[in-house]
Design a protein around this nucleic acid. Structure first.
Lengths: 154, 154
DNA sequence: TGTTAATAGTTAACGACGTGAACTAAATGA
DNA sequence: TCATTTAGTTCACGTCGTTAACTATTAACA
Protein backbone atom coordinates (compact mmCIF):
# COMPACT_ATOMS: atom_id res chain seq x y z
CA UNK A 1 0.00 0.00 0.00
CA UNK A 2 1.33 3.40 -0.86
CA UNK A 3 0.70 6.49 1.19
CA UNK A 4 -2.23 7.69 -0.91
CA UNK A 5 -4.02 4.39 -0.62
CA UNK A 6 -3.60 4.41 3.14
CA UNK A 7 -4.92 7.96 3.33
CA UNK A 8 -7.89 7.03 1.19
CA UNK A 9 -8.72 4.02 3.35
CA UNK A 10 -8.43 6.02 6.55
CA UNK A 11 -10.67 8.68 5.12
CA UNK A 12 -13.31 6.15 4.13
CA UNK A 13 -13.08 4.45 7.49
CA UNK A 14 -13.36 7.55 9.65
CA UNK A 15 -16.17 8.86 7.50
CA UNK A 16 -18.27 5.79 8.06
CA UNK A 17 -17.35 5.11 11.65
CA UNK A 18 -19.01 8.25 12.92
CA UNK A 19 -22.30 7.50 11.23
CA UNK A 20 -22.28 3.85 12.25
CA UNK A 21 -21.68 4.94 15.83
CA UNK A 22 -24.56 7.40 15.66
CA UNK A 23 -26.87 4.84 14.09
CA UNK A 24 -25.98 2.21 16.64
CA UNK A 25 -26.86 4.62 19.42
CA UNK A 26 -29.88 6.05 17.77
CA UNK A 27 -31.62 3.04 16.23
CA UNK A 28 -31.41 1.00 19.37
CA UNK A 29 -32.58 3.86 21.51
CA UNK A 30 -35.56 4.30 19.20
CA UNK A 31 -36.35 0.62 19.60
CA UNK A 32 -35.98 0.56 23.33
CA UNK A 33 -37.68 3.78 24.34
CA UNK A 34 -36.54 4.68 27.83
CA UNK A 35 -35.20 1.37 28.97
CA UNK A 36 -31.40 1.27 28.82
CA UNK A 37 -28.80 3.48 27.26
CA UNK A 38 -26.05 1.96 25.18
CA UNK A 39 -23.52 2.34 27.94
CA UNK A 40 -25.82 0.86 30.54
CA UNK A 41 -26.52 -2.11 28.31
CA UNK A 42 -22.84 -2.88 27.89
CA UNK A 43 -22.19 -2.50 31.60
CA UNK A 44 -24.98 -4.95 32.38
CA UNK A 45 -23.66 -7.37 29.80
CA UNK A 46 -20.18 -7.28 31.26
CA UNK A 47 -21.46 -7.88 34.79
CA UNK A 48 -23.65 -10.70 33.56
CA UNK A 49 -20.85 -12.34 31.62
CA UNK A 50 -18.51 -12.13 34.57
CA UNK A 51 -21.17 -13.16 37.03
CA UNK A 52 -19.81 -10.58 39.41
CA UNK A 53 -17.29 -7.78 39.14
CA UNK A 54 -16.10 -4.53 40.67
CA UNK A 55 -16.15 -0.92 39.52
CA UNK A 56 -12.44 -1.15 38.85
CA UNK A 57 -13.00 -4.15 36.59
CA UNK A 58 -15.50 -2.17 34.57
CA UNK A 59 -13.28 0.89 34.41
CA UNK A 60 -10.42 -1.23 33.12
CA UNK A 61 -12.55 -3.17 30.66
CA UNK A 62 -14.13 -0.09 29.12
CA UNK A 63 -11.15 2.23 29.50
CA UNK A 64 -13.02 4.90 31.37
CA UNK A 65 -12.43 6.78 34.58
CA UNK A 66 -13.64 5.14 37.76
CA UNK A 67 -15.88 8.13 38.48
CA UNK A 68 -17.74 7.55 35.24
CA UNK A 69 -18.39 3.97 36.31
CA UNK A 70 -19.62 5.10 39.70
CA UNK A 71 -22.14 7.38 37.99
CA UNK A 72 -23.42 4.69 35.63
CA UNK A 73 -23.60 2.08 38.37
CA UNK A 74 -25.46 4.51 40.54
CA UNK A 75 -28.11 4.97 37.84
CA UNK A 76 -28.41 1.22 37.39
CA UNK A 77 -28.72 0.83 41.13
CA UNK A 78 -31.43 3.49 41.25
CA UNK A 79 -33.35 1.52 38.65
CA UNK A 80 -32.96 -1.60 40.77
CA UNK A 81 -31.03 -3.43 38.07
CA UNK A 82 -27.94 -4.34 40.07
CA UNK A 83 -26.94 -5.29 43.59
CA UNK A 84 -23.90 -4.04 45.42
CA UNK A 85 -22.33 -6.23 48.07
CA UNK A 86 -19.32 -5.19 50.06
CA UNK A 87 -16.57 -7.78 50.24
CA UNK A 88 -16.00 -8.69 53.87
CA UNK A 89 -12.46 -9.92 53.19
CA UNK A 90 -11.44 -6.54 51.78
CA UNK A 91 -13.92 -3.94 52.80
CA UNK A 92 -12.76 -1.47 50.18
CA UNK A 93 -14.21 -3.67 47.46
CA UNK A 94 -17.83 -3.69 46.31
CA UNK A 95 -19.06 -6.60 44.23
CA UNK A 96 -21.66 -5.91 41.56
CA UNK A 97 -24.21 -8.44 40.36
CA UNK A 98 -27.39 -8.24 38.32
CA UNK A 99 -30.64 -8.26 40.20
CA UNK A 100 -33.51 -10.38 38.89
CA UNK A 101 -34.97 -7.25 37.35
CA UNK A 102 -31.59 -6.46 35.84
CA UNK A 103 -31.26 -9.92 34.32
CA UNK A 104 -34.71 -9.72 32.83
CA UNK A 105 -34.28 -6.26 31.39
CA UNK A 106 -30.88 -7.17 30.01
CA UNK A 107 -32.21 -10.30 28.34
CA UNK A 108 -35.17 -8.45 26.90
CA UNK A 109 -32.97 -5.63 25.61
CA UNK A 110 -30.48 -8.05 24.10
CA UNK A 111 -33.30 -9.86 22.35
CA UNK A 112 -34.63 -6.66 20.83
CA UNK A 113 -31.20 -5.61 19.64
CA UNK A 114 -30.75 -9.00 18.04
CA UNK A 115 -34.12 -8.77 16.35
CA UNK A 116 -33.18 -5.40 14.94
CA UNK A 117 -29.81 -6.60 13.69
CA UNK A 118 -31.05 -9.91 12.32
CA UNK A 119 -33.25 -8.01 9.93
CA UNK A 120 -30.32 -6.87 7.91
CA UNK A 121 -27.39 -9.08 8.79
CA UNK A 122 -28.79 -11.56 6.30
CA UNK A 123 -28.29 -8.98 3.58
CA UNK A 124 -24.62 -9.83 3.81
CA UNK A 125 -22.89 -12.83 2.42
CA UNK A 126 -21.88 -15.13 5.28
CA UNK A 127 -18.20 -15.07 4.38
CA UNK A 128 -18.24 -11.33 4.01
CA UNK A 129 -19.79 -10.62 7.38
CA UNK A 130 -17.66 -13.22 9.07
CA UNK A 131 -14.46 -11.75 7.67
CA UNK A 132 -15.66 -8.30 8.56
CA UNK A 133 -16.20 -9.15 12.19
CA UNK A 134 -12.88 -10.97 12.43
CA UNK A 135 -11.07 -7.90 11.14
CA UNK A 136 -13.12 -5.72 13.44
CA UNK A 137 -12.00 -7.79 16.39
CA UNK A 138 -8.41 -7.54 15.25
CA UNK A 139 -8.79 -3.78 14.97
CA UNK A 140 -10.20 -3.70 18.46
CA UNK A 141 -7.26 -5.64 19.83
CA UNK A 142 -4.78 -3.33 18.16
CA UNK A 143 -6.54 -0.23 19.45
CA UNK A 144 -6.70 -1.65 22.94
CA UNK A 145 -3.00 -2.54 22.90
CA UNK A 146 -2.18 0.93 21.65
CA UNK A 147 -4.23 2.46 24.44
CA UNK A 148 -2.57 0.26 27.03
CA UNK A 149 0.86 1.23 25.79
CA UNK A 150 -0.09 4.88 26.04
CA UNK A 151 -1.31 4.37 29.57
CA UNK A 152 1.88 2.60 30.59
CA UNK A 153 3.95 5.46 29.30
CA UNK A 154 2.49 7.74 31.96
CA UNK B 1 -26.61 -18.97 8.20
CA UNK B 2 -28.67 -20.53 10.93
CA UNK B 3 -30.05 -18.64 13.88
CA UNK B 4 -27.22 -19.57 16.22
CA UNK B 5 -24.58 -18.38 13.81
CA UNK B 6 -26.35 -15.07 13.39
CA UNK B 7 -26.63 -14.67 17.15
CA UNK B 8 -22.96 -15.46 17.55
CA UNK B 9 -21.95 -12.92 14.92
CA UNK B 10 -24.14 -10.22 16.42
CA UNK B 11 -22.70 -10.91 19.82
CA UNK B 12 -19.16 -10.65 18.55
CA UNK B 13 -19.97 -7.49 16.63
CA UNK B 14 -21.70 -5.64 19.44
CA UNK B 15 -19.01 -6.66 21.88
CA UNK B 16 -16.28 -5.12 19.79
CA UNK B 17 -18.16 -2.10 18.53
CA UNK B 18 -18.39 -0.52 21.96
CA UNK B 19 -14.69 -0.78 22.62
CA UNK B 20 -13.74 0.43 19.16
CA UNK B 21 -16.00 3.42 19.67
CA UNK B 22 -14.40 4.17 23.02
CA UNK B 23 -10.90 3.78 21.64
CA UNK B 24 -11.64 6.01 18.67
CA UNK B 25 -12.86 8.72 21.02
CA UNK B 26 -10.19 8.22 23.59
CA UNK B 27 -7.03 7.70 21.58
CA UNK B 28 -7.66 10.67 19.36
CA UNK B 29 -8.51 12.88 22.31
CA UNK B 30 -5.26 11.83 23.95
CA UNK B 31 -3.39 12.79 20.82
CA UNK B 32 -5.09 16.11 20.39
CA UNK B 33 -5.12 17.39 23.95
CA UNK B 34 -7.79 20.06 24.16
CA UNK B 35 -8.13 20.94 20.52
CA UNK B 36 -11.21 19.34 18.97
CA UNK B 37 -13.67 16.75 20.15
CA UNK B 38 -14.65 13.92 17.85
CA UNK B 39 -17.97 15.50 17.02
CA UNK B 40 -16.43 18.88 16.34
CA UNK B 41 -13.87 17.31 14.04
CA UNK B 42 -16.53 15.59 11.96
CA UNK B 43 -18.60 18.78 11.77
CA UNK B 44 -15.61 20.71 10.50
CA UNK B 45 -14.86 18.02 7.98
CA UNK B 46 -18.38 18.08 6.62
CA UNK B 47 -18.37 21.85 6.29
CA UNK B 48 -15.00 21.73 4.60
CA UNK B 49 -16.04 19.01 2.17
CA UNK B 50 -19.20 20.86 1.26
CA UNK B 51 -17.45 24.21 1.12
CA UNK B 52 -20.49 25.71 2.79
CA UNK B 53 -23.57 24.30 4.46
CA UNK B 54 -26.37 25.03 6.89
CA UNK B 55 -27.24 23.72 10.33
CA UNK B 56 -30.06 21.73 8.78
CA UNK B 57 -27.64 20.07 6.40
CA UNK B 58 -25.49 19.00 9.33
CA UNK B 59 -28.46 17.78 11.32
CA UNK B 60 -29.61 15.69 8.38
CA UNK B 61 -26.15 14.36 7.58
CA UNK B 62 -25.40 13.28 11.13
CA UNK B 63 -28.94 12.35 12.12
CA UNK B 64 -29.04 14.58 15.14
CA UNK B 65 -31.44 17.20 16.34
CA UNK B 66 -30.98 20.74 15.08
CA UNK B 67 -30.50 21.99 18.63
CA UNK B 68 -27.51 19.74 19.09
CA UNK B 69 -25.99 21.23 15.96
CA UNK B 70 -26.64 24.74 17.21
CA UNK B 71 -24.73 23.92 20.38
CA UNK B 72 -21.74 22.42 18.57
CA UNK B 73 -21.63 25.21 16.02
CA UNK B 74 -21.79 27.73 18.79
CA UNK B 75 -18.71 26.21 20.43
CA UNK B 76 -16.87 26.17 17.12
CA UNK B 77 -17.86 29.76 16.57
CA UNK B 78 -16.62 30.69 20.04
CA UNK B 79 -13.28 29.15 19.14
CA UNK B 80 -13.22 31.19 15.96
CA UNK B 81 -13.17 28.11 13.74
CA UNK B 82 -16.19 28.87 11.58
CA UNK B 83 -17.98 31.83 10.06
CA UNK B 84 -21.73 32.31 9.92
CA UNK B 85 -23.22 34.32 7.09
CA UNK B 86 -26.92 34.97 6.79
CA UNK B 87 -28.36 34.33 3.36
CA UNK B 88 -29.89 37.55 2.05
CA UNK B 89 -32.19 35.69 -0.33
CA UNK B 90 -33.76 33.74 2.50
CA UNK B 91 -33.00 35.41 5.77
CA UNK B 92 -33.91 32.35 7.79
CA UNK B 93 -30.85 30.55 6.47
CA UNK B 94 -27.34 30.84 7.90
CA UNK B 95 -24.43 29.59 5.83
CA UNK B 96 -21.48 28.05 7.64
CA UNK B 97 -17.92 28.07 6.37
CA UNK B 98 -14.55 27.35 7.90
CA UNK B 99 -12.45 30.31 8.97
CA UNK B 100 -8.75 30.28 8.19
CA UNK B 101 -8.11 29.20 11.75
CA UNK B 102 -10.72 26.48 11.34
CA UNK B 103 -9.14 25.21 8.13
CA UNK B 104 -5.73 25.10 9.74
CA UNK B 105 -6.87 23.35 12.88
CA UNK B 106 -8.89 20.88 10.86
CA UNK B 107 -5.97 20.04 8.60
CA UNK B 108 -3.63 19.68 11.54
CA UNK B 109 -6.07 17.46 13.41
CA UNK B 110 -6.72 15.32 10.36
CA UNK B 111 -3.00 14.87 9.89
CA UNK B 112 -2.51 13.72 13.45
CA UNK B 113 -5.37 11.27 13.22
CA UNK B 114 -3.90 9.88 10.04
CA UNK B 115 -0.48 9.56 11.64
CA UNK B 116 -2.04 7.66 14.51
CA UNK B 117 -3.97 5.33 12.24
CA UNK B 118 -1.16 4.79 9.74
CA UNK B 119 0.91 3.25 12.50
CA UNK B 120 -1.25 0.21 12.61
CA UNK B 121 -3.25 0.09 9.39
CA UNK B 122 -0.20 -1.49 7.81
CA UNK B 123 -0.55 -4.39 10.21
CA UNK B 124 -3.43 -5.50 8.04
CA UNK B 125 -3.28 -7.20 4.73
CA UNK B 126 -4.35 -4.77 2.00
CA UNK B 127 -7.15 -6.99 0.74
CA UNK B 128 -8.37 -7.58 4.25
CA UNK B 129 -8.60 -3.94 5.24
CA UNK B 130 -10.05 -2.97 1.91
CA UNK B 131 -12.79 -5.58 2.16
CA UNK B 132 -13.40 -4.56 5.73
CA UNK B 133 -13.99 -0.95 4.87
CA UNK B 134 -16.21 -1.83 1.94
CA UNK B 135 -18.41 -3.94 4.18
CA UNK B 136 -18.36 -1.20 6.79
CA UNK B 137 -19.62 1.27 4.23
CA UNK B 138 -22.34 -1.15 3.20
CA UNK B 139 -23.32 -1.55 6.84
CA UNK B 140 -23.46 2.19 7.18
CA UNK B 141 -25.74 2.50 4.15
CA UNK B 142 -28.08 -0.13 5.49
CA UNK B 143 -28.23 1.47 8.92
CA UNK B 144 -28.86 4.87 7.40
CA UNK B 145 -31.65 3.51 5.21
CA UNK B 146 -33.19 1.80 8.19
CA UNK B 147 -33.07 5.03 10.14
CA UNK B 148 -34.62 6.98 7.29
CA UNK B 149 -37.43 4.47 7.00
CA UNK B 150 -38.10 4.80 10.71
CA UNK B 151 -38.17 8.56 10.42
CA UNK B 152 -40.60 8.45 7.50
CA UNK B 153 -42.97 6.27 9.47
CA UNK B 154 -43.58 9.13 11.92
C1' DT C 1 -54.31 40.56 0.27
C1' DG C 2 -54.26 38.82 4.61
C1' DT C 3 -54.20 34.96 7.48
C1' DT C 4 -52.31 30.55 8.10
C1' DA C 5 -48.50 26.94 7.32
C1' DA C 6 -44.14 25.65 7.10
C1' DT C 7 -39.24 26.31 7.62
C1' DA C 8 -34.54 27.77 9.74
C1' DG C 9 -32.54 28.43 13.63
C1' DT C 10 -32.14 29.46 18.72
C1' DT C 11 -32.91 28.88 23.55
C1' DA C 12 -33.89 26.55 27.88
C1' DA C 13 -34.30 22.65 30.92
C1' DC C 14 -32.85 18.25 31.30
C1' DG C 15 -30.16 13.67 31.18
C1' DA C 16 -26.13 10.61 30.12
C1' DC C 17 -21.45 10.14 30.10
C1' DG C 18 -16.78 11.64 30.18
C1' DT C 19 -12.80 14.24 32.75
C1' DG C 20 -9.59 15.60 36.88
C1' DA C 21 -8.99 16.55 41.64
C1' DA C 22 -9.92 15.95 46.30
C1' DC C 23 -11.78 12.99 49.46
C1' DT C 24 -12.92 8.54 52.77
C1' DA C 25 -11.99 4.15 54.21
C1' DA C 26 -9.40 0.12 54.23
C1' DA C 27 -5.32 -2.63 53.44
C1' DT C 28 -0.25 -3.08 53.02
C1' DG C 29 4.40 -2.96 54.20
C1' DA C 30 8.99 -1.09 55.61
C1' DT D 1 3.57 2.58 63.69
C1' DC D 2 3.19 5.52 60.02
C1' DA D 3 3.52 6.33 55.15
C1' DT D 4 1.78 4.47 50.90
C1' DT D 5 -1.34 2.18 47.98
C1' DT D 6 -5.86 0.81 46.60
C1' DA D 7 -11.19 0.93 45.96
C1' DG D 8 -14.58 3.69 45.56
C1' DT D 9 -17.18 8.19 46.00
C1' DT D 10 -18.13 13.03 45.39
C1' DC D 11 -17.81 17.50 43.19
C1' DA D 12 -17.31 20.86 39.56
C1' DC D 13 -17.13 20.97 34.97
C1' DG D 14 -17.58 20.13 29.72
C1' DT D 15 -19.73 17.82 25.62
C1' DC D 16 -23.38 16.14 23.22
C1' DG D 17 -27.82 14.34 22.93
C1' DT D 18 -33.16 15.04 23.76
C1' DT D 19 -37.88 17.70 23.74
C1' DA D 20 -40.55 21.81 23.86
C1' DA D 21 -41.32 26.47 23.21
C1' DC D 22 -39.81 30.38 20.95
C1' DT D 23 -38.44 34.11 16.97
C1' DA D 24 -38.10 35.37 12.44
C1' DT D 25 -38.89 34.63 7.85
C1' DT D 26 -41.00 32.65 3.79
C1' DA D 27 -44.69 30.26 1.30
C1' DA D 28 -49.42 29.03 0.33
C1' DC D 29 -53.95 29.73 -0.57
C1' DA D 30 -58.96 31.23 0.27
Amino acid sequence: MNKDQVTELIHRYTKVSFIVKRMAESLIKDQLSDALTNGQFYMLRYIQEQGTCTSSNLAEAFFVNKSAITAIISRLKDKGLINRVRNEDDRRVVYLTLSEKGKNLFTETEMRIHLLLENFITEFNEDEISAFITTYEKLSTILVDLKKNQQEEL
